[in-house]
Computed example of a mutant assay.
Amino acid sequence: MSYATAAALQAAVYARLASDPVVTQQVGGAIHDAVPAGTPPGTFVVVGQGETVDRSCVTTPAAEHRLRISVISNAAGFQRAKEAAAAVSDAMLADPVPVLPRGRVVGVWFARAEAGRVRGTGARRIELTFRVLVED
C-alpha cells in the first residue's frame, strides 16, 4: 500500500466537482480544501478529509480512500444543504471514474452521509463519505 495516490485523488475529485454543472449550479465555485476563514455566506463544499487503508493483494498494491466531502450551508433548514449534497453525490458516482496521473481508480462507492448542525454558527453540515479503491 502507498499513500502516494492521495493528492492526485483529491485533485481529481476537486476537478470533477468544479466541472459538474449541477454542483456549480448549487455552490458556484465554492469548493475548497479547508473551511474558509470566518463564516462564509451561502453553501459551499470542502474536499480533503479522509482515511486511507491498505487493500493490497499479493500482486497489486492498492489503497481504499475513505474520502469525506462536507457540504456546509447557512440557509434556513436542511433543504439547501441536501440539494447540494445530492449534486455532489451524483457527480462522485458518475462514470467514468476519475483518471489519475499515478494509479488507477478501480471504483467509487457511496458509504454514508450524516447531517447535523455546526456548533456555534447554526449552519447545516452534511458529511458524505465515499470509498475510492485505487491500485498503484
Rank of each mutant, 00 (worst) to 15 (best):
A62I: 06
L67D: 09
A76V: 15
I72K: 00
K82G: 03
V53S: 06
S70K: 06
S56H: 12
C57V: 15
T60W: 07
R80H: 01
R55C: 11
Q79N: 01
A62Q: 06
A81Q: 07
T59Q: 06
A85V: 02
E83S: 02
K82H: 14
R68F: 08
A76D: 11
T59P: 01
I69V: 11
A86H: 09
I72P: 00
S56V: 03
T59C: 05
I72R: 07
A85H: 02
T52Q: 11
R68M: 08
A85K: 00
A85W: 00
S56N: 09
E51G: 13
P61Q: 12
I69T: 11
C57H: 14
R80E: 04
A84P: 00
L67C: 10
F78V: 14
H65F: 10
R66W: 13
G50R: 04
V53D: 14
S56M: 09
E51A: 09
A76K: 11
K82M: 09
G50I: 08
V71R: 00
A84S: 13
H65T: 03
V53W: 05
A86F: 00
T52L: 05
E51T: 10
H65G: 08
A84T: 10
P61C: 13
T60V: 09
A63L: 03
V58H: 05
A75V: 09
V71C: 03
D54E: 14
Q79R: 05
V58C: 10
D54R: 11
F78R: 13
Q79I: 10
A85L: 00
V71N: 01
R68Y: 12
E64M: 12
K82Y: 12
E51I: 11
Q79L: 08
K82W: 02
A85E: 02
A63M: 15
G77K: 05
K82S: 14
V58N: 09
S56E: 04
V58D: 12
R55T: 13
R55M: 12
E51H: 10
K82D: 14
A86T: 08
A84C: 00
V71P: 12
E83I: 01
A76F: 05
F78D: 15
S70G: 10
E64D: 12
K82N: 08
K82F: 07
S73Y: 10
A84V: 01
A81P: 00
A81S: 04
R80K: 13
V53T: 14
N74F: 12
T52E: 06
L67M: 11
K82A: 14
G77I: 07
R80Q: 05
E64A: 14
E64Y: 01
T52C: 04
A85Y: 06
A84M: 07
T59H: 04
L67H: 15
A75Q: 06
T52M: 13
A86Q: 09
E51S: 13
A75H: 06
H65S: 05
I72E: 08
T60F: 07
N74H: 03
H65C: 15
H65P: 00
L67T: 04
K82T: 12
L67E: 12
P61L: 08
